[in-house]
């Protein structure tokens, strides 16, 4: 490998001219908005009562999805989306224990050696079971999901589409978070499952995960026959560009935080989608 090969590669890593201009326009629009707000603030200070009312509006909007047994789920108003784009998002606060670093496999610990201060590793596996074996964790499986063919979710690693992968985040060579992502394809739906564990070396406070939503959002609490409390967020995107409903189930189990994204096939958009998701939830060991 010559220096010119490195240069050639980096030369090709770029935004399209259209995307770059769109981002610049967005940046300059925000500059105008902020300038406008500053000028308004200089003209007149809001009375304290108005500020209290504004805060209450935000809090009430946030409670549109109420807290459940599983943990707090909060909808962040559109203009507080951390990514700055249109749409909403919500945070998930899970109630689950952080595990000792030593309970992870030697292999996971070894991958951290030589990494930077903050770094991540993504590794593909053939199945969800292989992912848990790599991490050295004994997580109960799901008898329905494990019977399904692998799906098109997951991600690209080394140019290959993978349906199962492990993502490990390290701080100063110590694993602080691990996530197993698996994708399944049923006849009438597809499911993406994410299982997150945090180690005792993870001192980051606040929400566990933030999810973006794209349609009208409602929620439902569900308790499986085994007593597992699940918060199901329903993102009705039929009027948005996606033309589908997405059900997102959140629950904690075995010191791990689970998230299932359930997508009914577009051609079989039936109210039965939620029932099928619940059948899957009931099938967790």
């Amino acid at each position: 490998m010559e220096d010119k090969q490195l240069k050639q590669v980096f030369d090709q890593v770029k935004l399209s001219p259209e995307r770059e201009e769109a981002m610049l326009a967005d940046l300059l629009n925000k500059k105008k908005e902020v300038s406008g707000m500053k000028q308004a603030n200089n003209r007149r200070r809001l009375p304290a009562a108005a500020l209290v009312a504004a805060v209450l509006v935000v809090v009430l909007a946030g409670s549109a999805i109420a807290a459940g047994h599983f943990g707090r789920v909060n909808v962040v108003p559109k203009d507080q989306n951390i990514y700055g784009g249109a749409g909403s998002s919500y945070d998930i606060y899970g109630e689950y224990n952080q595990i000792p670093v030593e309970s992870l496999s030697e292999e996971v610990l070894a991958y951290g050696k030589g990494l930077g201060e903050y770094d991540v590793v993504d590794l593909p596996f053939a199945s969800w079971r292989e992912c848990t074996a790599f991490l050295g964790l004994d997580l109960g499986g799901n008898s329905i999901l494990e019977q399904l063919p692998q799906g098109e979710g997951g991600c690209y690693l080394d140019g290959e589409r993978v349906s199962n992968y492990v993502h490990v985040g390290y701080y100063e060579e110590t694993p602080v978070v691990a996530r197993i992502v698996s994708s399944y394809q049923g006849e009438r739906y597809s499911v993406d499952e994410e299982v997150t564990i945090r180690t005792e070396e993870n001192y980051i406070s606040g929400a566990d995960t933030r999810m973006d939503t794209y349609g009208k959002v409602t929620s439902e609490d569900y308790v499986t026959p085994s007593g597992m409390a699940v918060k199901i967020v329903i993102d009705d995107m039929r009027e948005a560009e996606f033309q589908t409903i997405r059900y997102i189930a959140h629950f904690s189990k075995d010191d791990a935080l689970y998230m299932l994204q359930f997508f009914p096939n577009i051609e079989s958009q039936s109210p039965g989608g939620l029932d099928e998701l619940k059948e899957i939830l009931d099938a967790y060991e």
Binding site: I82, Y83, Y118, D119, V120, G169, Y171, V176, V177, I204, A207, D208, T209, R210, D212
Partner: peptide, 8 residues
Amino acid sequence: LRHWWRTK
């Protein structure tokens, strides 16, 4: 990266 959960 520190706020790993934010990464899409």
